[in-house]
Design a protein around this nucleic acid. Sequence first.
DNA 1: ACTCGTGTTAGCTG
DNA 2: TCAGCTAACACGAG
Length: 276
Amino acid sequence: MPELPEVELARSTIEEAGLGRTIVDVDDADDWVCRPHAPGEIRAALVGRRLTAAHRRGKTMWCDTSQEDGEDAGPRLGLHLGMSGRIIVRTAEGGTVHGGDPVRGVDGTDAAVAKAEWYRFTLVFEDGGSLRLFDKRRLGRVRLDPDLEALGPDAAEIGVADFRARVGRGTAPLKARLLDQSVLAGVGNLLADETLWQARQDPHRPAGELSADELTALHRSLRTATEAAVRHGGVHTGEVISHRVKAGRCPRCGADMATGRVGGRTTWWCTAEQQG
DNA sequence: ACTCGTGTTAGCTG
DNA sequence: TCAGCTAACACGAG
């Protein structure tokens, strides 16, 4: 699930329900998710502190932490949801205040029961509540002081001039350019397909071939698609997403949807409007 | 049994 | 050195 819209929703969940609560315990035993930290390292850094702010750039989140007596401000806690991660914040009473049911999520699966081992990382608060990373596939990541240098500007905030300069260059397929997190941070496979469909652009087209006007329109489409996804609860709510299926038809013109691999990802496009 | 995947990245190639 | 591409990562779901 997690692309920029899902991560923004997770960030706001932490902001609304996870800040200001003193951390009394940390489960960082999963040394794959917490790499390169050794088990206990994150725990030692965070116990006694509080989360004071929740930030996001692209698909990466990080929380500022409070200072302890006589020390500098605490380390930043970096959180990445990977391919299947979710943030679950629980109240002192154990109820889920935000983040929804861990299994019965937007992906529609509802048969399974959440297994304890799918909780890959946990902060336990003094009030008895918790903040947890729930991640079936274990591609999520938790680390202290994450490096943000490799990330381009956030896809929801980049201005049109900057967007044109960064995206409209190179010979790589346009979709690959949109997916490159060092060019622009936050666009994932579904948001890329939705954006290109809205802008009626061929995903295979070399990015450097687009005109200034086309790039301006693409920037507008990205904004529109991203804002709608945040508002509606995730990228899966995009207009073309449910038509990315075998024998699917374009919901705008009715032409066949085609599929192939672009930028290493499964891609769907309208054969009529996107010059398939 | 076998393939796929809403993400990231080390490593290879030209 | 850079831009671009592929495989690998972990593991559940179909």
